[in-house]
């Protein structure tokens, strides 16, 4: 709640600069500030539904690391194997679901597709991993944050940067034309023409 109030205040600050400040460059900053307040709000709220970045390899590695801490180095290797196999199938995500069987299946499949050297390890490690996956299930559900707001805001950020660049170029030309950064003065000088 407190962070949203802070964002709201930030937004109002930016808006006050746009409306109240006379300097055009500061007005452009104000536009930037309100844009960023909206972007942060969207991303922040969208990130409250999960606890992991929306990148699923990280998910597998995290699962592996958790398993590793519980059952020795096996889990880490399993994660590595899953990564080495290169081709990510939904099955590789299965440790995230926390079920032991599919975790084993994942390693079996991943190492089958992966380099031969890794395949030999799998048999020894399956037991450890099963243990690790159990402890992972106890750690609480693994879930990623909502990736949609992040993708949308990526677009909004780029658009905001473009608008800022164009606005600054216009402000530069206006300064060259009128010799002032004061918006009222610009209006007065330019609308003086017949």
């Amino acid at each position: 709640m407190i962070e949203r109030i802070a964002l709201f205040v930030l937004f109002l600050l930016g808006f006050a600069v746009i409306v109240g400040h006379k300097n055009v460059v500061k007005k452009i900053f104000g536009l930037n500030i309100i844009n960023n307040a909206a972007v942060i709000l969207f991303v922040l709220e969208g990130a409250k539904v999960g606890n992991q970045a929306p990148i699923l390899t990280t998910g597998a590695a995290v699962a592996g690391a958790a398993a590793g801490s519980a059952g020795g180095s096996g889990g880490a290797v399993a994660g590595a194997v899953a990564q080495m196999s290169g081709e990510v199938t939904p099955v590789a995500l299965a440790p995230a679901a926390g079920t032991v069987d599919s975790a084993c299946a994942a390693i079996a499949e991943a190492s089958g597709a992966g380099p031969g050297a890794a395949a030999g390890l799998t048999g020894d490690l399956a037991g450890n991993v099963a243990e690790g996956a159990n402890s992972l299930a106890n750690l609480g559900a693994f879930s990623v944050v909502d990736p949609v707001p992040q993708a949308l805001m990526l677009t909004a950020i780029v658009i905001g940067v473009c608008i800022t660049a164009l606005a600054l170029a216009l402000a530069f030309r206006l300064y060259k034309a009128t010799g002032t950064f004061d918006i009222d003065e610009m209006y007065r000088r330019i609308h003086h023409e017949p």
């Binding site: 746009i18 309100i34 164009l166 206006l174």
Partner: peptide
């Protein structure tokens, strides 16, 4: 023209907001 820069700037600011 200077006027067109000012017009474009005003439009940009209000529509950007």
């Amino acid at each position: 023209k200077p006027g067109s820069f000012l017009a474009a700037f005003s439009y940009l600011m209000v529509s950007g907001t």
